[in-house]
Amino acid sequence: MSISTPEGDVRTDPTTGKPAETAESSGRNGFLDVGARRAVRRRRLLVRAIQLGLFVAIFGGWQLSSSMGWIDSFFFGSPSGIVDQLTTWAQSGTDAGSLWEQIGVTLEEAVLGFVIGVLLGIVCGVALGRVRLLAEVFAPYIKAINAVPRIVLGSVFIVVLGFGLSSKVALAIVLVFFVVFFNAFQGTREVDRNLIANARILGASSAQVTWQVVLPSALTWIIASLHSSFGFALIGAIVGEFLGADKGLGLLVRQAQGNFNIDGVFAAMVIMAVLALVAEAAISRLERRLLAWRPPQLSDMETAA
């Protein structure tokens, strides 16, 4: 089974990555302290300034173009229109009820789908990674299902499970499952053979090897997949709502589309982006906690800067 994980292969292997000696590196840090820290701060300021400038340029340009009539705001919307739409929704609710209720519904579907999909993905990925026979039996099926555009399943779920919560959760689960499954499977396969042999010789049972060696080792891979999988959960929930629902952000998009209200579509997108960013921050926190044992990596230092 070939698995594509953009993040997986650039990571340094925690078990073979050769970190510097403690004494040495702390000494070097002390030496670098004064000058380096200032340079890092200056760089961070520069990045922020450019980011802000870019934001102003894009949204300012958009706003200007539509107010000046260079582009038709009926088709392309405008930032002020989006803000107006958001305020209206927040203050007087949407056609489907209060805005918070729509956000709550979508969030509930996405989170449920995410959690169930992640758990299923980990269990199946680790099981197939550990038990060769299972992997051989299921490989063609998984490849086949993976090749199907799974979003189409949304229609199936709506028909089978109805307009309510469960059809959206089901779609989110399916989307999340495969991402996590492939990473968990690959992570399990990549576990250092020596670590397993060592644990077994030290007296670990098969279950202890799975829990204490394989899972922690595969966690680097699994967590890398969580970043993209919340996005997929959100897509599952929203597409599900788009296909048929009486509540949720996907419904707002559909209604706005029906009314040729482009600002409404963009406003819903803004909300989704905020949700995704908040989730991303939470997952990054979780990642730092669970992988606290890892040596600091070059990429981490760069993103921190």
């Binding site: 925690p14 078990t15 020596n194 644990a199 204490q212 060696v213 044992w293 890892r294």
Partner: peptide
Amino acid sequence: TDAVLPWK
């Protein structure tokens, strides 16, 4: 090669 568990 190192076979100690790096997360412990």
